[in-house]
Design a protein around this nucleic acid. Structure first.
Lengths: 195, 195
DNA sequence: GTCTATAGGTGGATAGAC
DNA sequence: GTCTATCCACCTATAGAC
């Protein structure tokens, strides 16, 4: 989930650079000019591929969500237990952070009041998808007794997503990945994961 | 901690409006023009009180931090137990959220890569102050047995700050304060707070 | 302290040649 | 598909009158 696989076509390269900018600076703090400079093309060329910034933003979320869900599907295919699945889930966040990025959707969540509606819709879908996947893992772990936690899986899933996004944000402010790791470990311990 | 007490002088009114804009839209998504329109003055007048936006931003953090610390001091003066102190602490976040705002420093944490250095320094101080206060409360609760939790108070304090900021961000994306409340309650339960 | 006026730069976006 | 050239709105910031 860190850097996207070096893409082939121009549209893909634009998304790569735009994504890196969005995840480090935020949606309102990067411009077509930034992308153009990085990609050695003109701004006009970018508008051929993505007519508006709102469209570019929407496509960025779609791509990020797709890649994230693909990672989750791969975790499922690994046949790991609930505890290991959660650890892998946290690992996805760590990968992003190690690449000096914030989660694309966590960043947008902060800026949500300034986003065009299509982006807001996609954004919620990302978090809903994460919640859905986590709920399944939590239910699995509860029924096979590998996880123990209080309350509804849905609430715990929301706690996890929110806490991981927040911890990520703070870790970035301090430029200290270990800060995230410590919080994530503590969180998982609370759900009955030792080490 | 929600809306600042209706201020007297112009500088204070500027900070009120700028703060509201910063907490809803983000530092990179509001301008002197926005403040000027809201306050019915010209942009030039604003520059008399705050020469640069970086200076304005720094002063905003300072004021927010001061008010927050004042609220924490008041909680201390109340003589409440550790459990009640934590509940009041969460209450401060709820107040901000009910005012349709993000925590000023949580918002800036997301944008940290684009902030001038003086603002970044102030930002960290805010989180350090919060951590310090929480550590004291956690130690108090652990020693008088009103709280029980695993690990170092420092790590739990960081977990709390990060998780509350993250939950706040997501609650705002969904425009649903109850989402924050549920997560906060769950968090406190994990530290041994029933209801 | 607040105003008008303006500078100098950047934002997203388009027209039209190649 | 990429370019040059350009539009217009907006940005932060300053000079100087009142």
């Amino acid at each position: 989930m860190g850097r996207p696989s070096t893409s082939q076509d121009t549209a893909g390269r634009i998304l790569d650079i735009a994504g890196q900018l969005l995840q480090t600076r935020g949606y309102n703090a990067f411009s077509y000019a930034d992308i153009a400079q990085s990609l050695h093309v003109t701004k006009a060329s970018l508008h051929y591929h993505f007519p508006t910034k709102a469209e570019l933003g929407k496509r960025l979320i779609e791509r990020y969500k797709y890649a994230f869900l693909e990672s989750l599907a791969e975790i499922d295919r690994s046949g790991a237990g609930a505890r290991e699945k959660l650890k892998h889930y946290v690992g996805l966040y760590v990968d992003v952070l190690r690449d000096d990025r914030m989660c694309l959707c966590g960043m947008l969540a902060a800026e949500c009041a300034t986003l065009p509606k299509p982006m807001k819709t996609e954004l919620k879908q990302f978090f809903d998808d994460n919640e859905r996947w986590l709920v399944a893992v939590l239910e699995q772990g509860r029924s096979d007794k590998t996880l123990r936690f209080n309350g509804a899986p849905r609430d715990v899933a929301r706690l996890l997503v929110g806490s991981l996004e927040g911890a990520m944000m703070l870790a970035r402010s301090y430029d200290d990945v270990t800060r995230f790791q410590a919080t994530a470990d503590h969180l998982l311990t609370g759900i009955g994961i030792g080490n």
